[in-house]
Simulated assay, not measured.
Amino acid sequence: MDLDTLKTTWKALDERLARIEALQAQANDLERARDAEARAKAGQLASHRALRPLAIGLGLQAIAGVVLATIAVAFWAKRMDAGAHFVVYGVLVQAYAVALIASAGHELSLIRRVRMTGAVLDMQGALAALRRWRETVGWVLGLAGGVIWVPLLLMGLAVLGFDVWTHRPSFIGWLGLWAVGGTAAVWAILRWAERHPRFGASMRANAAGQSVRRAELALADVRAFEAEGR
């Protein structure tokens, strides 16, 4: 074999080896892409499953709000001529029920945004919006719930035939003090939590709910896997 033939042969071998390496690189890229896609779909499915209990709970909250609003309207509508205080009881409870319905509806729409979004980064953004809403409105409804039990109790007593406003007005004052005092205590805890980041973060996580935290963790795993792939 002369020198020119040897050079030609080596050149052909080098070209063949380069083609094999290129094909292997393409195969590896394709495998990584398929793995990343499968991991993303698994993370999306896990986040959807994590949010399912929350969606069911919100549906029950909306139903409870509708039932409570119906009861409140029926209560004050039948007693408009019996006294303005009955109307006040019913309207306060009705307003709280409407807030429950509206909050549940908005949260369900946010959950739908998470489910309808395809990209993991977009899902994380939708989850962040859901978390912010729950952290804010959850405490607002909780504080309102610490007061709304008073007119709800007075409604129940009125249904049983006892008009507390007419016969024991001082009792309503005591109920109001208890409710306001409890709400003020919770508010003070929230203000204190703002000055203590670790405790505040724990409270915000509890307000967001376990379903949201699980969904966030599922998507965080996907993002970490994508970062390692780069």
Rank of each mutant, 00 (worst) to 15 (best):
A77I: 04
F171S: 15
P53S: 01
S170P: 00
A215P: 08
A46V: 06
V212R: 08
A215S: 08
S47W: 03
M1K: 05
W149P: 04
L152N: 10
E194T: 12
S47Q: 02
L175V: 09
D2G: 15
A218Y: 06
R39E: 07
R32Y: 00
A72I: 04
T5G: 05
Q94C: 07
V147G: 04
G118R: 05
I71V: 00
A208M: 10
E216F: 13
G138W: 08
A97I: 03
L157V: 03
R79E: 00
G83N: 08
F162M: 12
E228T: 08
W133A: 09
A126S: 11
V164M: 10
S109D: 14
A64V: 02
E31S: 15
A207Q: 10
M116G: 08
A99K: 11
A25T: 15
E107Y: 00
V159R: 05
L190P: 00
A126P: 05
E194P: 13
I189L: 13
L45M: 11
A119H: 03
V93C: 11
A40V: 06
A215E: 00
G156N: 08
K78F: 01
D2A: 11
D14E: 14
I189E: 11
T70M: 12
A25K: 06
G161A: 12
A126E: 08
G161P: 07
V140K: 08
W178Y: 04
A104S: 14
S103L: 11
H85E: 06
A99P: 07
T8Q: 12
A227S: 09
R204A: 10
D35Q: 12
G105L: 14
F171N: 05
R230S: 09
V88I: 13
L23C: 03
L45Q: 09
A84H: 06
I63V: 13
L154R: 14
W139G: 01
A74R: 14
E107P: 00
A84P: 08
I101K: 02
V87Y: 00
V140G: 06
L154F: 02
L130V: 06
H167Y: 12
T183G: 07
N28A: 09
A62C: 07
A12R: 10
